[in-house]
Computed example of a mutant assay.
Amino acid sequence: MQETQPAPAVRDGYHHGDLRAALLDAATEMLEAGASFSLRAVARHANVSQSAPYRHFADREALESALAVRGFHELRGRLSQGGRLAASEAELTEFAVAYVGFALQHPAVFRLMFGQPCDDRNDERVLAAGELHTLLEDSISQVYAHIDPAPLATALWALTHGLAFLHLDGKLTADSPEAVAVRVRDAIAAIRALPTTPASA
């Protein structure tokens, strides 16, 4: 008589506090695959019990905010290379290259981070987004010590963010990471090369 094999057990919990990370990983995979997700769907994808996500996330909006926070932290880490400010114009340009590169590597997460209004009720998300902008302003202050960094930070972010979405939306081709990086560097160099005063008529 053939023995019936027991069904694989659903992992109802994770040791060492890694359930939250596993749920975020599962949600990220679903998001980047274009699948709509709920907490129950994420639980199935992570192979945990249906109730497990509620230990960390009250609802889908809380999960989305957590994904955005993790995205902001990863992006900030790429830009700062371990917390270091840019020390030259060339390094500021590489901020832009890394920003666009992140958007193309994680398009769905990037759209979640920036394509939706920030949930002002989520302090962690507000802080993570603010830290990214502070990094840019502080770097500009270090490179250009005698100017107000805020307007230039806005201009550089607008240019870089626009390039990211132009590539994501297919308005600019993203044939390779190297080609995209060259385009970003060329765009910033073109802005820097503009004369400070218009040519006389």
Rank of each mutant, 00 (worst) to 15 (best):
V97I: 13
E137D: 04
L159P: 01
C118Y: 10
D169H: 00
E91W: 09
D169A: 00
H45R: 08
E178F: 00
D12T: 11
A150E: 11
D186N: 09
F110S: 07
L31V: 08
G115K: 01
D148R: 08
A129P: 04
D25S: 04
V182A: 03
H15F: 13
L67E: 04
R125C: 10
Y54C: 05
P53C: 01
N122I: 07
I191H: 15
S88H: 07
H167P: 00
H15R: 15
S139W: 07
H16W: 15
E94W: 14
A96Y: 06
M113W: 03
A27L: 02
D186C: 03
S65P: 05
V109L: 15
M30P: 02
T4P: 03
D123G: 15
T173P: 05
H73L: 13
A9I: 02
R185H: 06
R55V: 05
V184E: 01
A158E: 04
L19H: 11
D59G: 05
E89C: 12
R84K: 14
A190W: 09
P6W: 01
Q105L: 14
A164Q: 02
S200D: 13
E89G: 09
T173Q: 13
H45F: 05
A58Y: 07
L112F: 08
F95P: 00
P177R: 00
F114W: 15
S36W: 08
A155K: 01
P151M: 00
M30R: 05
D148S: 08
R60V: 08
D12F: 14
T28H: 08
